[in-house]
Design a binder for these strands. Structure first.
Length: 86
DNA sequence: ATAATGACGTGAT
DNA sequence: AATCACGCCATTA
């Protein structure tokens, strides 16, 4: 099991309406300092079964997205992970 | 084995 | 609060 495979597995297990930071995913993958590597994995990942849009930055910003399933902000808002107000 | 890349993170200015 | 610089890790050429 490579780091990438673990990252995918973890992201795939993120429940709806929930979000994890790259650092959190990296930590669960076994490398708490590999947030960037997680980003690389996400970018390269094209599997729609992986809710990669639920992975955001540690400071709360959405970070990036390749538009695999549309706009990241929209997807999260639909799941209730993003509050339209406040 | 080395260099370059990138959806990050934290600390300093 | 906003911006800059540096560090960190994994993957690929």
């Amino acid at each position: 099991m490579d780091f990438t495979e673990r990252v995918v597995a973890i992201v795939r297990g993120i429940p709806e309406g929930k979000t994890l930071s790259y650092g959190e995913v990296a930590a669960r993958a076994g490398s708490p300092r590999a947030a960037r590597a997680v980003g690389v994995v996400m970018k390269n990942n094209t599997d729609k079964r992986v809710p990669c849009h639920r992975v955001i930055r540690a400071n709360g910003t959405l970070g990036g997205y390749n538009g695999l399933r549309g706009e990241k902000a929209t997807l999260l808002r639909n799941e209730g992970a993003l509050t339209s107000s406040q």
